[in-house]
């Protein structure tokens, strides 16, 4: 496993230029999470129209993996319903799981066909200590959705 597979261009791009960065003035849901071991932080604000996420904003600080993961997540969930987001979250968590070897139907010939840019984070699985970085944004999202 080469470091180039971990630090793919798309990850570095999201790290340098995080999408949907900031806060929403009066969000319908919000959550904040910290990884106490490393100090990475993510705050997520959401607005809904019925069951569908209309706006999402993330304020965060941390490493390239936690930041890019959160940024890619915001792009993936905008316009999605709660149940679509739940299914996306499950797919992401299994992609990050070292125990499970679930077939997510990821197509090596067509990268991004299932999870979009997020698939670029597959490389993280080879670095177990960094999995928690990739998961942070998604964990906070789950909290915001249940709040």
């Amino acid at each position: 496993m080469a470091l180039e597979d971990l630090y793919r261009e798309v990850i570095l791009d999201h790290y340098r230029n995080p999408r949907n960065k900031g806060h929403i003035d009066s969000p319908d849901a919000t959550a904040h999470g910290v990884n106490p071991l490393c100090g990475d932080e993510v705050t997520i604000d959401l607005t809904f129209n019925g069951d569908t996420v209309t706006e999402v904003a993330v304020e965060s600080q941390g490493c390239s993996i936690s930041q890019s993961s959160a940024s890619m997540m915001t792009e993936a969930i905008k316009g999605k319903t709660r149940s679509e987001i739940e299914s996306l979250t499950n797919k992401f968590k299994s992609m990050m799981s070292i125990e499970e070897d679930t077939d997510l139907g990821l197509d090596p010939e067509r990268p991004g066909s299932v999870l979009g840019d997020i698939e670029a984070l597959q490389g993280v699985r080879q670095y177990p200590v960094r999995i928690k970085c990739a998961n942070l944004g998604w964990t906070v999202l789950a909290e915001a959705l249940s709040s």
């Binding site: 470091l3 971990l6 630090y7 340098r16 490393c38 990475d40 941390g62 490493c63 390239s64 993996i65 930041q67 670095y127 200590v129 960094r130 970085c133």
Partner: peptide, 13 residues
């Protein structure tokens, strides 16, 4: 431009 955790991972390699 490079977070300390990324540095540590790269150094570890």
């Amino acid at each position: 431009g490079v977070h300390a955790h990324d540095l540590a991972t790269i150094l570890d390699e």
